[in-house]
């Protein structure tokens, strides 16, 4: 057993994900308290060259082998299980991404380690990890401990600053070659998103619609407002899943991260997955019928009201004012 804090480094196409740096930064802080090391764990093709970005970690474990050349949920789980078993870290941190969700839960079951998901904060109390997780669509947080004092955590992106984990130069490297493989899931290829008619990451004004618009036809109300403001319409996941707007307009965890001058969130409750993609907008104005909607916690201005009345009125007043 050790007091080390392990971090899974997520990377794709030769780029280390921002969340990995967020986790390294936090791991360093926690390792300083626990008396252990912050250990970056990286697998797959290109891993050895990417360690040059992981200078903030105390150590890196590079796991290499034919079964982990490309990410697969089962392949990563099979390769990580013995490493966790050998080192028994105090904590292993994963990003709460597709990769993190699959591997963390798989490992929890396979290695019989408890898992705390959706973490937004982490600290140590008497040497034991205390995890704060965001549940119920961001409406309630849960503060938890592991019964046996150690475990796995998946952390929501943006919970910790990336700066603290960003340092060029390679930490001390431990290479592990693995023959672990699980060919039941085979990686075929990465598919880049199709380019859309509008690049919402470049728009300075976004009118963003959520489930509250109720019907496809009502998106027109948001489009009219966006036209009046010289901006574009974006959306939260349910609207895109329903096929009312293309994927290229989706803001959030599985969509795009935007930082416009104005983000008008209309009928968006503000689930954590959505907030991840827009909380850095310069001015956020939210319109929702539910006064307890989490979107109001990140918005600068809020209106509790009926969007079907508010949007046309807003469009009309802007048109009058602009003339």
């Amino acid at each position: 057993m050790s007091n080390d804090i392990f971090v899974l480094i997520e990377h794709r196409d030769g780029v280390v994900a921002e969340t990995s740096f967020e986790l390294i930064g936090k791991a360093k802080e926690l390792a300083g308290e626990s008396g252990g090391a912050a250990v970056a764990v990286i697998l797959g093709d290109g891993a050895a060259t990417l360690t040059g970005k992981l200078g903030a970690a105390d150590r890196a474990i590079v796991i290499d082998g034919p079964g982990v050349a490309q990410f697969t949920p089962t392949g990563y789980t099979a390769a990580l299980k013995p490493v966790l078993g050998e080192h028994e870290p105090l904590l292993m941190l994963f990003p709460n991404s597709a990769v993190g969700m699959d591997v963390a839960a798989g490992l929890s079951q396979a290695a019989d380690l408890p898992l705390a998901a959706y973490a937004v904060d982490l600290k140590l109390a008497d040497g034991q990890p205390v995890v704060t997780s965001q549940v119920y669509g961001g409406k309630i947080n849960a503060e938890m401990k592991f019964t046996k004092g150690r475990g796995i955590v998946t952390v929501i992106a943006g919970s910790f600053p990336a700066d603290a984990g960003q340092q060029d130069g390679s930490p001390e490297i431990q290479s592990v070659s693995t023959d672990a493989s699980d060919s039941r899931v085979r990686f075929k290829k990465l598919i880049a998103p199709e380019a859309g008619d509008v690049d919402i990451t470049k728009e300075s004004v976004l009118v963003s619609v959520g489930r509250g618009v109720e019907e496809e036809d009502n998106i027109e109300l948001a489009q009219e407002l966006a036209d009046a403001l010289g901006g574009a319409v974006s959306a939260s996941r349910p609207v895109v899943d329903a096929g009312w707007l293309p994927k290229t307009r989706q803001v959030g965890k599985s969509g795009l991260k935007v930082k416009p001058k104005l983000y008008l969130a209309v009928g968006i409750s503000g689930a954590p997955e959505h907030l991840e993609g827009m909380r850095d907008a310069e001015l956020i104005i939210a319109v929702n019928s539910d006064e307890n909607a989490p979107i109001f916690s990140v918005a600068h201005y809020g209106v509790v009201g009926d969007l079907f009345d508010l949007l046309p009125s807003l469009t009309e007043k802007i048109q009058e004012r602009v003339g």
Partner: peptide
């Protein structure tokens, strides 16, 4: 394998100024 110590409504850094 988890012990939930407490649930709480998150204190946010701020709250929207309501119009």
């Amino acid at each position: 394998g988890l012990e939930v110590e407490r649930l709480f409504v998150p204190e946010t850094g701020g709250h929207a100024e309501m119009i």
